[in-house]
Design a protein around this nucleic acid. Structure first.
Lengths: 253, 253
DNA sequence: ACACCATGGTGTATTTATAACACAATACTA
DNA sequence: TAGTATTGTGTTATAAATACACCATGGTGT
């Protein structure tokens, strides 16, 4: 919560630097120990959880703004990041709009403005991400998809829409490059797909299909150390991966 | 072009009623005589063509705003209309931003503001649409996709993105209900698909596949009058069509 | 009246993709 | 050294997509 003085400073700063009425919210997916994770923030002194978000600088392209937010929250750059929907219900942020209504008149009160938010989703490398709270938050943390806190505003809806979009994209886009470590085994990659789709897949058919896309390189050295048979390691063939991103994986008609 | 007085009135009105920094542009597709058409507007006294667009009222959901714009330009309501992308480059509307810079200071000049535009695309019934110019325009007309005027700003890019999206959607969504007349023949429907995809399709495979979706009803009376063999008429089965819209047509995995 | 032709309806092999299932190889454990 | 969980590599059955051939109809030109 802001004091009046803090609120005034925040609003002055926001009015000066940001495009009014527009915000960005990011659904940042990571993958670790067989679990799909999402980055969420907890407000200071409140039991209120949010998706990472922010505003667009006056001369900043929106994709750049989304990247900036992603980098601020994770330290990561040059990541798969994709706009997926604009949420523009006038009531979507009513609790925020009314939050400080007694402290400042609506004109000067950034919070009382209507905001449309552009939803972006990102797929990032869990291990290299360094979750960092923003100035309003005291916690920035990964949470399992199945163990999410209730999210404020329409952020639950935004998350669900992102997940639906991700599942759809899976059908005609390669994913995984940003979610997996550089080298990984086929079963590990399969686990990612199973987790995103929330569905078991057949080992052998998965492998055949995946290799059929031609975006994987099998490495010479199998993974050692673990119990059981040593699995082969794979890495993504970046050229073909990029090509598949642009051209799609199969497509009907 | 506005006179100074007109500009002031326009800006006062806009500031009062619309959400600043947000616009909507619609790519309205129609289909007639085997041609995919797009609705475009020509500015008064200028050889400048645009997509139909507008702004969002302060308390209006964005989908409602898009529908309002669609209705104003075509008279049609309850139409397939879908948000597909936000265009948020700060330079995207520079020519507009600079247009009236000598008449009004930037603060008061709506045109000098940066606008992000939300792209919507619609599929409408060509025959029942009644193209109607807005107050800045003198022409509102259908143009063949292959015979488009050069569009101002980034509207060419918006159109292309809409078309790409439409082609992609074709793979997992039924289309045609809003683009075809109530009753149509299979070859006519095929022509629609061929036009959108810009690609010949096999008659027999198209028919099998289409019927396989279970969204068509074959009517009892074949079309008469034309030369050659009388083709059957079909109509969409609205229940199944709606279901297919919600659930998708096939989907991988 | 008749062959002709453009168009529409229907059917059938061929190929390809998806799905279902079985067995051998490995590396640790007991 | 047998047991077990895991990985690798098939093979077969089914369904879908593709390619192609033939007949039917209603007009045209002679």
């Amino acid at each position: 919560m802001f004091t009046k003085q803090e609120l005034i400073e925040f609003c002055d700063n926001a009015r000066l630097n940001f495009v009014d009425h527009i915000s960005i919210d990011c659904v940042i997916f990571g993958f670790h120990e067989g679990q799909l994770k999402v980055l969420v923030l907890k407000m200071k002194d409140e039991d209120a959880w949010y998706l990472p978000g922010g505003f667009v600088l006056k001369k900043e392209p929106i994709d750049t703004a989304a990247n900036r937010i992603l980098k601020d929250r994770t330290g990561l750059d040059k990541i798969f990041l994709q706009q997926f929907h604009v949420f523009g219900d006038p009531e979507r942020s009513r609790p925020h709009n009314e939050m400080y209504r007694d402290l400042l008149p609506p004109e000067e009160n950034w919070f009382s403005h209507r905001f449309l938010t552009i939803g972006y989703y990102a797929l990032v490398d869990f291990v290299h991400a360094n979750p960092t709270p923003d100035s309003h938050s005291e916690v920035c943390a990964w949470r399992d998809l199945g163990d999410l806190p209730k999210l404020e505003l329409d952020h639950g809806h935004i998350l669900k829409t992102a997940l639906d979009t991700l599942r759809l994209q899976l059908n005609y886009q390669p994913i995984g490059y940003n979610l997996m470590p550089k080298e990984f085994t086929m079963p590990e990659l399969q686990k990612l797909y199973e987790t995103i789709l929330d569905q078991k897949l057949d080992r052998r058919n998965f492998q055949r299909r995946m290799l059929g896309f031609g975006i994987l390189n099998r490495l010479d050295t199998p993974r050692k150390g673990g119990a059981h048979k040593a699995p082969y390691l794979y890495s993504f063939d970046l050229d073909n991966y990029q090509k598949a991103l642009n051209e799609g994986l199969k497509g009907g008609w």
